[in-house]
Write a protein that binds this DNA or RNA. Structure first.
Length: 559
RNA sequence: GCCCCCGUAGCUCAGUGGAACAGAGCACCGGACUUCUAAUCCGAUGGUCGCAGGUUCGAAUCCUGCCGGGGGUGCCA
């Protein structure tokens, strides 16, 4: 990456400057390379001279002058400038930039990727909703965050597993079964109340109707398990269908019950007790979390003998590590934010290193409909499903998934966002996602036009890239070659929303280029320029398609 | 009470490993289609970066306090 190359060149320059005595001997601070906002400050900039001033006991400008004087030659650097009060600004070489088109052409499916992960195993756990009801907008955010982070990890050389953890046992599922039973009997003319804390959503009526259609009144005497199982199957099918519509596909659906059946929970409890991190009090088993740096101890086995949710979570994370994942990302909603420190503490108590487990907590989404906040509750059956939203956001040419994914990828997970349904539907025709997609479609239109005008891809493959000297061309090129850094940063910071911002900038630079530079011309003496620009367009299309692909958004050829 | 996240332009939000005049989209105002798709482009307007202190050569960014919104604080998940 350019940024890393620059750091190395600066360090070389410092060594040479010290060897010649132009600057004193001192240990250079970590070189930070930033992207200046102002184009006059070049493409990259460093404040290392200012950071060094105190260490070197020398004026920043003097240090910068020495570093510039000893800066090694590099093909990608056009010029190196000094700016007060000591910034060193680097500008990329125009001719080098133009030649990058060939580099992009050579890696249409992988430009911007890296091998940072070196094929090591990574896991992203997300959604992980229990099958008690349809997925809602909050789940959609987790789904899009997780899926995109997984894509980013793949792009940076990790062997990624997308995993969904769920529990189909326990009290909630029993209540769900009982609630379904009530709906079933209701259809057969028997009125019974929905149990206390039961599920009131209409979806149970539809599942009940399916049961009636299938079995008639044959299940009147059936136990609750029959209904619980039917509810689970139906709801899980619905969840999977929703995820498919969102473009999310899991490699593993991990059932919490497996942890019991394989004895992993018991083994973990035993190990905690043996090591003294678990103790008995008031008939329950507690995790000595205070010895692990936390504020209070926590119950892991209730006095009823049933584990709390923490225990399977601890065993599950141990299992993840045992499966050989070297990087683990968990994505939870803000309501789970208090639980994961306990879980990781438990994992550590069992002797595992948790430093490679990253937890992303996304904030809540406030949903507005008709200007009113929609209070959601799966139990009460009050919610807006992802499916319903996708229906509303779908247009004849673009699936709703593109709008939803892009929108959810414009905000950082830390931001608690408000989603105005009416506005989203109304403004969908002005949604930024279309702006980016239109850029891609526009390139495709140009390439089609070129084919009609007799420019074959085989011919422009040899186009002379040195003809790309227009400011709009160079600005576009600068953006295109930034994608490796965008991918690296978004992955390192687990901040996939950076992709959408980059995509908008890239599309903008292309649209400007489109207006400034005619690509396909009939003029014989401009044919060479056309060939070069066609190569640029094809390369821009590659980069645009790459960033859209990482976001899980389609790259349409026509709009 | 305590813990976590947030408070940046009319609205929705970026930017918060400190740095060179604070950004984008939408909305609003004014321009550009005989030209490869105007779902585009160009220009204008718009902000005491919640408030008050502190650290620093330099703070939207770091520290402290306060105010406001959300989430948590369970032998529920």
């Amino acid at each position: 990456m350019i940024r890393d190359d620059l750091i190395s060149l600066i360090q070389q320059a410092a060594l040479k400057a010290q060897a010649t005595g132009d600057i004193p001997i001192f240990s250079l601070p970590d070189v930070v390379i930033e992207r200046p906002k102002n184009p006059e400050h070049g493409d990259y900039s460093t404040n290392v001279a200012m950071q060094s001033a105190r260490l070197a006991k020398m004026a920043p400008v003097k240090i910068a002058e020495a570093l510039i004087a000893h800066f090694p030659a590099a093909a990608f650097i056009g010029k190196v400038d000094l700016a007060h009060p000591g910034f060193i600004n680097f500008t990329l070489s125009d001719s080098w930039l133009a030649q990058q088109v060939a580099v992009i052409e050579a890696a249409p499916d992988s430009f911007g990727n890296s091998d940072a992960g070196q094929g090591r195993k990574a896991q992203v756990e997300f959604v992980s909703a229990n099958p008690t009801g349809p997925l809602t907008i909050g789940h959609a955010w987790g789904a899009v965050l997780g899926d995109t982070i997984a894509s980013l990890l793949t792009a940076t050389g990790w062997d990624v597993t997308r995993e969904y953890y769920f529990n189909n046992g326990g009290r909630q599922m029993r209540l769900l079964g009982e609630s379904l039973r009530v709906r079933y009997l209701e259809l057969l003319g028997q009125q019974n109340p929905i149990p206390q804390d039961g599920y009131q959503g209409d979806y149970l009526r539809w599942i009940a109707a399916a049961l009636v259609a299938e079995h008639g009144d044959g299940l009147v005497e059936a136990g609750v398990d029959v209904f619980r199982n039917k509810a689970e199957l139906s709801i899980f099918a619905n969840i999977r269908a929703t995820l498919a519509r969102l473009g999310v596909d899991f490699d593993v659906y991990y059932n919490e019950l497996d942890l019991y059946e394989t004895g992993k929970i018991n083994a973990a409890v035993q190990a905690l007790s043996t090591s003294g991190y678990a103790y008995q009090k008031d008939g329950a088993t507690w995790l000595r979390a205070t010895d692990l740096g936390l504020k209070q101890d926590r119950v892991i086995i209730k006095s009823s003998g049933e584990p709390t949710y923490r225990m399977p979570d601890i065993a599950y994370h141990v299992d993840k590590l045992e499966r050989g994942f070297e990087y683990i990302v968990d994505i939870f909603g803000a309501d789970h934010h208090a639980t994961w420190p306990d879980v990781l503490a438990g994992v550590r108590a069992l002797g595992y290193d948790t430093s490679d487990i990253q937890v992303i907590i996304h904030q809540f989404i406030t949903l507005l409909r008709d200007g009113q906040e929609v209070k959601m509750s799966t139990r009460r059956g009050e919610f807006v499903t992802i499916d319903a939203l996708l229906d509303e956001l779908t247009t004849p040419s673009i699936p709703g998934r593109d709008v939803m994914r892009f929108m959810l990828l414009t905000r950082s997970a830390d931001s608690s966002m408000t989603f105005d349904i009416d506005l989203a539907v109304k403004e969908s025709s002005e949604n930024p996602v279309y702006y980016v997609q239109y850029g891609h479609a526009r390139i495709c239109a140009i390439l089609r036009k070129a084919a009609e005008e007799g420019f074959s891809p085989g011919e422009y493959a040899d186009g002379d890239l040195s003809l790309l000297i227009h400011p709009a061309e160079l600005k576009l090129l600068r953006k295109m070659i930034a994608i490796p850094e965008v991918i690296a940063d978004a992955t390192a910071q687990l901040a996939p929303h950076q992709l959408s911002h980059y995509a908008q900038g890239l599309a903008n630079d292309f649209h400007v280029f489109y207006h400034e530079c005619k690509v396909v011309t009939a003029e014989p003496d401009e044919r060479q320029l056309s060939l070069a620009r066609l190569r640029l367009c094809a390369a821009a299309r590659i980069v645009l398609a790459r960033v859209l692909g990482l976001m899980g958004v389609t790259a349409p050829e026509r709009m």
